[in-house]
Write a protein that binds this DNA or RNA. Structure first.
Lengths: 191, 191, 191, 191
DNA sequence: GATGAATGAGAATTCATTCAT
DNA sequence: CATGAATGAATTCTCATTCAT
């Protein structure tokens, strides 16, 4: 009736939407995309199945949205207004950021990895993901170029692979992979 | 008139079996385990759905067999009754072997990774896979212990993560990941 | 506009559920449990196959529910708050009840017998069924013991077998088996 | 080549045929008709699936043959060109025969009952079965008529039902149903 | 907005039967 | 006569999506 009511409606919508996405992320990470049914999501999110389709066009749309928002959050972190120069100090900061992000967003990365491995799903998300990978690689390459390494591209690839491997191990077996010690060793070895 | 001989039957079985496994590996790698239906496998293998069940007990059995054979091939490589001591020379050999294996068995590793990421599928294969991972980790740990590193376990984990990352990148984007150069750099940096 | 009320939903569920169970009982009785497909049930009940699974967990659950409800109705009749003593008068009453039940629930007994005969299905329902058989047998045994028969257990078994035989004949060939006359003769002969 | 060889072939055929039928009867009795696959029968009978179809037109033909032979054996027993008069002595003999038959042919009766309960299967065997039931009923009716019972048909039906019930109980729970004691009690009570 | 009943396509699996050899 | 590989239809069951209310 009143404007305030409209706002309340919107608040409800937003919170419900967030609730659905949170639940879906959890379930996708636990059981995989294909292994998670709309039914399970809606019941765990305590809404009706039908209502899901009021918030998302379908299961695929839900997935894309989830990945999209995850990527956006990451992009926000590594926000670009920097000069493109990575000093050793900044590198340390960068590593800290990545590791902290990893721990905070473990479920998202679990889903992200699981999806990366399924080429059929990958297509759905590839563009978004490349948008975040590319600048990191180029930042790293520049870093090694400035250090006058023989083959800065290769060094960047190797370091990128190392990050990937660390994430992989941490995300899927956090119990067996002490992130803090790994981080310290990484800094000691490579910076 | 006369029935087929036992040898003839065995030949048929072997070739069909191989044909099914090849097709299944491809499709599992392409679309994931859950994303691949028995129907798709059988039609791509140009056999009837029913025949699948003459060769494998079911989809799960097919998967396990696939993983099992892959693992066995790897174990054969790293099996040797060696003394458990890894010299730098042997480490180089080891790396060469891994990289060569990776290139030859790319599809298998793609599948292997895809499976690792799907928790629901993981349990089906975890035992087999651990059987091959564990000895490698302990070999690496010993290697670093002998080099008097402060924290050999952590060094082994880090190196393991690096291998994982390299495999991951190569397996999923071989075009963007020049394996030979990476290998050279790896040896130069770490041995 | 407004969603259906909870009551409306419940009414729909109850009627659908009853409709499915009625159809299933008929078909199970006609063609046996194994000889009746979910497809046939759903098409005769004019619903989709999928909807079956909204009401029952599966074919086995449907069967168990059917048996369960039948058994419960019987248990209600022979409800136990009696003193465990069966006088000749009560025995007459008991026989009348059984015969009346038989006539009213012919389809259920047809199913019940058909199931008893299929060992693979029997185990699914054995417990429930024993729960109703056992007290009747012990009631009969007591009756004969009080009459000072030499071998009350055997008398009870024989009478039980007679009931079974009567039910069997009536249930499967009601046209050739005049229940009323049989009942009268039974009472005349045995009480 | 020689006539003797031909005879040998026939002997092999006959024994193999008997072997198949024995196995099929066992499995049908254990798991029901629908619950028994041709595959199981042939493997337990140690022949190939294909050979089954050399001996029987199909599963249904196998069933009909089985029932047919069973019925024929029974008919042979009760066949005698007797005068149609049943004295009490003969009745005792008759009962003894039935009980002995029951014990010897338990598996057959188990199958027979299981089939009787499935109307769709019943049709396949009804004629054969009536051929054996009818004369028994008329024999019993005559017996009671001669004893000047008020309602000899009903007495015969009741006695027939009792036999059915006894068979039913014995065939499906031989452990709980001591046939000898039941027989003695039956003779004592009814003759 | 909200519900959950209802659908229908497709999944894994089983099995009687056929057929080349 | 004998084999068992091969087929295809049928079966049970799942699930994303639609829709009447």
């Amino acid at each position: 009736m009143t404007p305030r009511t409209a706002k309340q409606f919107e608040a409800i919508r937003n919170s419900r939407r967030a609730q659905i996405m949170k639940t879906a992320l959890e379930l996708f990470a636990e059981n995989g995309y294909q292994g998670t049914s709309i039914s399970k999501i809606s019941s765990r999110a305590k809404i009706s199945k039908g209502l899901m389709y009021n918030y998302f066009q379908g299961k695929e749309d839900l997935l894309k949205t989830l990945i999209g928002e995850g990527i956006n959050e990451i992009l926000d972190l590594f926000d670009p207004n920097r000069d493109g120069v990575l000093t050793p100090e900044e590198f340390k900061f960068f590593i800290n950021e990545i590791f902290s992000l990893m721990a905070r967003k473990r479920k998202f990365y679990k889903l992200y990895f699981a999806l990366m491995m399924q080429p059929s799903v990958r297509i759905l998300t590839e563009q978004k993901i490349n948008a975040v990978i590319a600048p990191m690689v180029s930042l790293l390459t520049d870093y090694y170029r400035r250090k006058n390494e023989d083959n800065p591209e290769m060094e960047a690839l190797l370091m990128g692979a190392l990050f990937d491997g660390i994430m992989l191990n941490y995300v899927f077996s956090p119990g067996n992979f002490p992130l803090d010690q790994i981080k310290d060793l990484l800094i000691k070895r490579f910076i």
